[in-house]
Design a protein around this nucleic acid. Structure first.
Length: 582
RNA sequence: GCGCCCGUAGCUCAGUGGAUAGAGCGUUAGGUUGCGGACCUAAAGGUCGUGGGUUCGAGUCCCGCCGGGCGCACCA
């Protein structure tokens, strides 16, 4: 659609119907900025463009004049092609000027039919975009969840898990290659505290104030396998931080480290299993410690030193982030010799790019926003394009029960696990819930209300519509009615329920494109709801399986088949099941 | 104190600088003997927190204010 309007605009300028702007680049900019959207009021047309109003200044003409010139070109193109002109038919059947200069466009009915035919021919490809010629197919790394394995995932982790997975699916559908990645810390203070807590419970002693107190700690204490217990008992006693030297084996582990690392790995495996239940699976699990043992942190520091971005001060190693506008420099290695998280992050950037990724997306909690700038700056200092490192800050979910906020603390053991949440409301409903809301705005989640109303979740409306489509196709098959091989003249009347449904169906590629460029998913749920609504209206008005009118019945069946394929594609994009019966 | 984010219908939330600001839930009134009633049609419900500004046009961009959340470590 955009292309058609762009062509018409350029032709109008070339033919002199519109004056050429002083600067050729200005015309290019105008063409690049052409927007074609679906008007809220469908009486205005299938699509509308505001290009005439936008171009008013550059082209030095009133919006209505510009719109009229473009409309004339579009109409000429349509009739020319229809009467034997060369090339494929253009997408637009009719163009007119309305209001202050809107260009209202009506799709050629044949275009809808072409789309529907393509869907029925290759239903599983529908919704997947080919990467446009010349556009790079990015190799994207999406790191998300990345909760430290010191306790089971809580419902607080749920949003990030869904957002990262949904974004991955959308980008894949848009033709990009995606690596899903989980980053976790397997050494250090937190793991040590976990080890101490497990040991305390095993010995029947109260857990320290700063230890972990959830029920799962007791379960771990009771489940220590004999070989681990033996190794722990044999380990030398020592105290202090488990640092990198300790991790890589140059200093022997003590009992706490042995137990802590065992407990942590066991929890990590549990997290992996919980995520699999959500339909979230990772390609790469990367431990923080490996960034040191494999030398990536050293490599990052070397590169920064070469670029003169480092400074030794007060016994510590600093990154000069003030050079990038940060309000203070940031420590990479503490005066104790241990590295900070920031140090690990630097190594991680180098490691990720070394695997050939050209875009990094970090799905982080909103509370990390303070660290966004410094890490992107460090990426720049390391020689990477700043634009290729993006942080998606997922906003807080305020969990409330009967209107009262619930506090969620892993250490205190006062949390609801992800597994518990899913038992209550189900994966499909939870996925829809998070997909339908912008990741960057805070939301309230009332667990009681979600449980009570889970059957009112719009996800069931969409799934129900899909099941009903399948049911119709089954019924037709039982009555020996087959879908037509082409949609025929069913869509000629653009006000018919068939045409309305067809227009809803063919929007999917636009939805995928918009979602992938904006890194959002709510448009997909909106699309699924709209398609289900259009189908329900069609279903009411048009009897599909009707042996007394086999030809019309066959055409409608083809439409239903296309609708089922498109709704199924949208649901799969959301990671939601596509039931054929409910 | 400084910085970032948010404030849209009774509730939960959408909303690419464009036409009459939308959806779901809830409420109200109808419909559905025809392929699945987990359905359909419609109504009521809005000072888009507030006051200025930019623009042909502002929920959207800029500034102030009010209210809420988060962050400001040689923590992880």
């Amino acid at each position: 659609m955009r292309d058609a309007v762009a062509r018409a605009l350029r032709r109008a300028v070339a033919s002199g119907a519109l004056p050429a702007p002083d600067d050729a680049a200005a015309l290019d900019a105008l063409v690049a900025g052409i927007e074609v959207e679906i008007p809220g009021n469908r009486d205005h047309g299938d699509y509308a463009s505001n290009i005439a109003m936008k171009g008013s200044k550059v082209l030095k003409r009133a919006p209505a004049q510009i719109a009229a010139a473009i409309a004339a070109e579009l109409t000429a193109e349509a009739s020319e092609r229809m009467h034997g002109g060369g090339g494929a038919l253009g997408p637009i059947a009719h163009a007119e000027v309305a209001g202050p200069g809107f260009l209202n466009l009506r799709l050629r009915a044949g275009l809808l039919a072409d789309h529907l035919d393509a869907i029925v021919r290759a239903p599983l490809a529908w919704g997947h975009l080919a990467v446009a010629a010349g556009a790079p197919a990015y190799r994207v790394n999406i790191e998300f969840v990345s909760a430290n394995p010191t306790g089971p995932l809580t419902i607080g982790n749920a949003r990030g898990a869904f957002v990262g997975d949904l974004l991955s699916r959308v980008l894949e559908a848009a033709g990009q290659s995606v690596t899903r990645e989980y980053y976790f810390n397997d050494f250090g203070e937190q793991v040590r505290r976990l080890g101490e807590s497990v040991i305390a419970l095993r010995n029947g002693v109260a857990v320290a104030e700063n230890g972990y107190k959830g029920d799962y700690v007791g379960e771990l204490a009771a489940a220590i396998p004999p070989d681990v217990a033996a190794r722990a008992a044999a380990a030398p006693k020592r105290s202090g931080e488990i640092d990198v030297e300790g991790y890589d084996g140059t200093v022997a582990d003590d009992e706490i480290a042995v137990i802590g690392r065992w407990a942590s790995e066991r929890i990590r495996a549990g997290i992996e299993a919980s995520l699999a239940v959500l339909g979230v699976e990772f390609d790469v699990w990367r431990s923080e410690g490996s960034l040191y043992t494999e030398g990536f942190v050293d490599r990052a520091i070397g590169k920064l030193r070469d670029g003169n971005w480092l400074e030794e001060r007060e016994g510590a190693l600093w990154f000069k982030s003030t050079a990038f506008g940060d309000d203070k420099d940031r420590v990479i290695r503490k005066s104790s010799g241990a590295y900070t998280y920031f140090g690990s992050d630097l190594g991680y950037i180098v490691e990720k790019f070394s695997r050939g990724h050209d875009r990094l997306i970090y799905v982080w909690g909103q509370d990390h926003h303070g660290t966004v700038a410094r890490l992107r700056n460090a990426g720049e200092a390391l020689g990477f394009d700043k634009e290729s490192v993006e942080m998606l800050l997922v906003a807080w979910v305020r969990f409330v029960r009967d209107g009262v906020e619930m506090s969620m603390s892993k250490r205190a053991g006062t949390f609801i696990t992800l597994d518990e949440l899913l038992e209550e409301i189900g994966v499909d409903a939870a996925r829809w819930y998070f997909a339908s809301r912008s990741a960057t705005t805070a939301i309230d989640f009332d667990i009681e209300a979600a449980k009570a109303k889970s059957s009112d979740n719009p996800v069931y409306y969409a799934q129900y519509a899909h099941a009903r489509m399948c049911s119709i196709l089954r019924k037709a098959s039982a009555e020996s009615l087959a879908p037509a091989t082409a949609i025929g003249s069913l869509l000629d009347d653009h006000t018919s329920p068939e045409a309305k449904l067809a227009r809803a169906i063919v929007r999917l590629p636009e939805v995928v494109e918009d979602s992938s460029t904006h890194h959002e998913t709510q448009g997909v749920t909106t699309y699924a709801t709209e398609l289900a609504t259009a189908f329900s209206a069609f279903y009411r008005d048009a009897k599909v399986v009707d042996a007394s009118a086999p030809e019309r019945s066959a055409g409608r069946l083809r439409l239903v088949a296309a609708a089922a394929a498109s709704l199924s594609a949208a649901l799969r994009l959301l990671g939601i099941s596509t039931p054929e019966e409910m």
